[in-house]
């Protein structure tokens, strides 16, 4: 008879309670894997992690440095959060950042006599316009000509980066300098500092934008429609939402923030137009946005984390002779580990 109760021997002990912790476990796994690499470099992993953390957050100087590096990442990743929520895969933030920096620099170099109160807003505006132009160009190619958006945003990166190099070498090159770069901007073109710290107004702008992007996405009709387009474009379309227009809007908003990040960086950190004005911020920000779960507050946390990794890795290099590239590996492993963990934790039971 089968209706008797037979104990089910095949049943496994439940691991369901682990699921919410999967991202954390993924992150820890990344640390373990990175440890192997550190051991291979001839150092003690625990010591290395301690140096890394202290190098990033161990004092006001370190924290300042981490915040400064986090700012462009945060700005760009907030923009990408808008784009990715609308399922618009903008891989071109690096190019948009460069064109923003270029236009802002042109304003700074051609209007050096303006007072700071006029010059800085004009520069920021030019940076935003640069980001808009570059992302808009990709948007037009995609929407009007049907070019794959990932490909055209990606390719426009290289053109944007090379345009900055050209501008710094030829038309805007400082005739008195030895290096292929523009003259230093006038003091009025530097974004004001906050009090007497090394932090600047851009930090506050980026922090404020965390709130703005949140409100835009979850409290505004535009954000609602953008998320609808991202969640199911066919439903959005049949409910009468102009999907092309919203794809373009998401792209332009992300481009604008990348351009803003670019102009802030040249204005404050580099104070001139030259090659190498980005640490690959536009690419790293993609990871920052994903790791932050495309949620503005999460993006803030992951921007600080990523920046801290980079800043801390410099100390790692100096004090333990571990290549700074280990930080890059750690970043990649962290993202993979946490994202894989997330995927597992969200899988339906």
């Amino acid at each position: 008879m089968t209706s008797e109760l037979i104990p089910v021997s095949q049943s496994k002990p439940g691991l369901g309670w682990l699921k919410p912790w999967a991202p954390v476990i993924g992150g820890l796994l990344a640390l373990v894997l990175s440890s192997i690499l550190i051991i291979l470099s001839g150092a003690n992993p625990l010591e290395a992690y301690q140096v890394l953390v202290l190098g990033a957050f161990g004092g006001s100087r370190q924290i300042t440095e981490t915040i400064l590096k986090a700012t462009p990442l945060l700005l760009i990743a907030l923009g990408l959060t808008i784009a990715f929520r609308a399922r618009v895969w903008n891989i071109g933030a690096e190019g948009q950042y460069h064109i923003g920096a270029l236009l802002g620099s042109i304003v700074a170099l051609t209007l050096p006599n303006l007072p700071a109160l006029l010059l800085i807003p004009l520069m920021l505006l030019a940076g935003i316009v640069g980001g808009l132009l570059w992302s808009g160009l990709a948007g037009l190619l995609h929407l009007k000509r049907g070019v794959n958006l990932i490909i055209c945003t990606l390719m426009l990166n290289y053109i944007g980066i090379l345009m900055v190099q050209y501008a710094a070498r030829v038309p805007f090159r400082d005739p008195d300098g030895f290096l292929p770069e523009s003259a230093k901007f006038v003091d009025a073109a530097q974004i004001p500092r906050l009090f007497s710290s090394r932090l600047h107004l851009g930090v506050l702008v980026a922090l404020a934008l965390v709130g703005v992007v949140y409100v835009l996405l979850w409290r505004s009709p535009l954000g609602f429609r953008l998320r609808a387009v991202g969640a199911k474009i066919s439903v959005a379309h049949s409910l009468g939402i102009n999907t092309s227009q919203h794809i373009l809007t998401a792209l332009l908003l992300s481009g604008a923030l990348a351009g803003l990040a670019g102009v802030i960086e040249v204005s404050y950190t580099y104070t001139r137009l030259k090659q190498g004005i980005s640490d690959g911020y536009g690419f790293t920000a993609i990871l920052v946005a994903l790791l932050g779960q495309m949620n503005p507050v999460g993006v803030l946390v992951s921007a600080v984390l990523f920046s801290g990794l980079v800043v801390g890795a410099q100390t790692l290099n100096v004090s333990l002779q571990i290549p700074a590239a280990v930080a890059g590996v750690l970043q990649a492993l962290l993202v993979l580990g946490v994202l894989a963990g997330q995927a597992i934790s969200q899988r339906d039971n």
Partner: peptide, 27 residues
């Protein structure tokens, strides 16, 4: 419009019940 295919034309599965119910009213 009550669409023939609610999953491709009528309903966003990742949106909440509230969001789906008010999709036409948000403006």
């Amino acid at each position: 419009h009550i669409p023939s295919d609610r999953y491709s034309m009528g309903l966003i599965s990742d949106f909440t019940v509230t969001e789906n119910l008010l999709m036409r009213d948000i403006d």
